[in-house]
Design a protein around this nucleic acid. Structure first.
Lengths: 243, 243
DNA sequence: GGAAACCAAATCGTCATACTTTTAGCTCCC
DNA sequence: GGGAGCTAAAAGTATGACGATTTGGTTTCC
């Protein structure tokens, strides 16, 4: 059912166990700047602070190290690296930053990224989408329209996310496809923060149907243009609302 | 000296110690498909195979888990997740894939990504670049030209990487900036595999100077167009060479 | 004979501890 | 004052023990 294949691994997106819970504390603290760049933590300190064993702390720190958020050095401790080095494409990092104080910066960055990527993805999708993709896309465009008419924000959000994720996936480019979740996070964040527009909704909806139609009929340029209008519009609204 | 700030942390891109060495073995093995999707490893097995302790294996596995390449489950073992779930933006994953059997796919994906992102970055850079950025860019364009004329491939590669990284950084978008290393990896991979063109070189060089000039004089559209020509050209050549 | 409940083994998860290695920073000597 | 060497602090690694959980077979009851 639904969009993706491989639900076998669903819900496995988070790190499990105690290290996971530690990350849920540390990640946001780092992203919010509560623990600032350059700060130095000691493993033992973390053990005490969170009441977990060395093993757990070390594994959590290793993961943060994998995201290039910290570096652990002997005789020094665990240093918080400058944000410019962080793996800003890592879904966890994105979520943490969206939840924290640099949500505006994160939303702006993601907005520009969407403007760059989604039109290209739409163009590729018009060429590479499978028949199933095209069917699903049409269907989503319709359900999107219905949900919008009924002003059902939650349902609408779900379909909107699914729509954009599908376009990205249908592009046939694995890297674009991977941005599906990221875009989903943006859309969710936007809704949560009531940054959704009310007026231009209708226009945006029509553009979504346009994208779907263009992709279905293989019109690359058209799909690209319509998608570009959607995402540039979203970015402009964003910049406006973040004043 | 040179491009970036913060050389304090230079060379800290790799995971340190035994877990790092384990990753150097496991990562490529996973990326190449030598250990296929769905395969199940046992921690103890890895301990023996690499002659390291549980601690080390667990930390390495945690990192792989952070990249969503594997999932560890009780009573089951360490399962290799489908490639579609891998954090395909993680620099390590990219390097492993570029070194392994799906280099072609990886290069194609990255090629498309560049086509989407770099023109947008160039356009933004024309607006947001600092004076220093602009000076550096001009200078790089010149050195690029010189190195090309002297047919010094290694030097040329270095400047080329620096050039594209600088444009991405000067865009003022942290996510674009972060793709600098990635693009660098592509360019390096392309050179290593003798996928560099010989004939259109001159044209490409001129385009680089055009990009630099446009950015320096704040001509967004011009910069975007010239950059688009560069990257679409690169992508076409790539597709051709990978037949 | 089949289905539901149960049990046991396998494997990861966590903890505690001991030992090793690295290295920042101090001391002491020249 | 500067450099060689010492010291101690912190992470890195190894190991043993136990806990938690999931799977899959086995038993039991209808």
């Amino acid at each position: 059912m639904g969009v993706g294949a491989g639900d076998v691994y669903a819900g496995r997106m988070e790190i499990q166990g105690l290290p996971g819970r530690l990350l849920d504390e540390l990640g946001p603290a780092l992203a919010s700047g509560e623990i600032p760049e350059g700060a130095v933590l000691r493993g033992e300190e973390l053990e005490e602070r969170f009441g977990v064993s060395r093993t757990v702390v070390r594994e959590a720190v290793r993961i943060l190290e994998g995201m290039r958020m910290v570096a652990s050095r002997r005789r020094v401790g665990i240093t918080v690296l400058p944000k410019s080095l962080w793996d800003v494409f890592d879904p966890m990092v994105i979520r943490w930053r969206l939840a924290g104080s640099d949500r505006p910066a994160q939303l702006r960055s993601l907005g520009s990224l969407r403007v760059a990527v989604e039109p290209a993805a739409a163009a590729l999708a018009a060429v590479h989408a499978t028949d199933d993709d095209r069917r699903e896309l049409s269907s989503l465009a319709v359900e999107l329209t219905v949900a919008a008419r009924e002003a059902d924000l939650t349902t609408f959000l779900g379909y909107d996310i699914a729509f954009h994720a599908l376009v990205l996936r249908a592009s046939g480019n694995e890297m674009f496809a991977h941005l599906g979740d990221t875009v989903g996070a943006v859309l969710t964040g936007r809704t949560e923060y009531h940054l959704m527009p009310h007026q231009p909704e209708q226009y945006a909806i029509r553009l979504h149907r346009e994208v779907a139609d263009a992709i279905c009929s293989g019109h690359s340029d058209e799909a690209e243009q319509a998608m570009r209008t959607i995402v540039t519009g979203a970015l402009e609204e964003l910049n406006q609302q973040l004043s």
